[in-house]
Amino acid sequence: MTRNSLSVRQRNTGLIATAAAAVIFITPFLYIFFMAMKTKKEAALFLFSWPREWHFWSNLTEVIMARNYMLLLAYMNSTLITVGAVTLLILFGAMVGYILQRRPSGWNRLIYAGVLVGLMVPPAVVPTIWVLQGLHLFKTLQGMVLIQVAYGLAFSVLLYRSFIATIPRDLDEAAIIDGAKPLQIFVKVILPLLRPVTVTLIVVQSIAIFNDFTNPLYYLPGKENVTVQLTLFNFQSQFQSQFNLLFMNILLVTIPPLIVFVFFNRQIVAGMTAGAVKG
């Protein structure tokens, strides 16, 4: 027996686990996929079945062309919001986390309490809109980016702060002795080391922001400001829904986060294990 081969029991356990995971994670996706291919009439039956007729292309074009190519505009808006918000979240989250962790002062406790409050207290919609109106940021993508940053920052700061605690201070001190200024220490020494937690944040926050429904609904009205989750309402209403197109839309909306996840997934795992082995 070579070192790498599995025993029968190990192999069987692995197979069962894989099969169970496949059923749990792939079945819903298959359901969405099949529904997206059906005719309106067949989709209204809600059966988990092989489509009788395949309408991939006609459903796809109908969804993309609906309401004057609204979906494409929505993709663009959602991508801009997601990229903008995640960039700011990482930048500010890392900075605040760094300072909080490295510079003990009387204010830290207060600031940390503020961060926790930001995590726990639910935001109120109407006053937030008043603030945005006052700043002339309501109904703009920039305003939406700032909202997402405000809602996500507490979580980012927490993650970064605890991660930076695991980076030895010796590194900072070595850099200081070499003549680095504070900003240089942060940018050249600390920031590159934050890669694992940054990748985790990118995945978690970009999926959350891309898939956000309620915040754009309240804070970003206007036909030009539509985001991907809001396009679902083109095909869904209380009394009459076009389920084949709805599921095709869901399918299209699900793909970008899936790509992000598949792309970064390897790095999340790599980052975690790298930290673990170094000790």
């Binding site: 919609v125 008043w130 109106q133 309402f233 209380q238």
Partner: peptide
């Protein structure tokens, strides 16, 4: 806009904020 309870909240919010 969405229908149902979501829609009710949305309409009231927008009227309250003049939007």
């Amino acid at each position: 806009r969405p229908g149902g309870a979501d829609g009710d909240n949305l309409v009231k919010t927008r009227l309250a904020t003049g939007e």
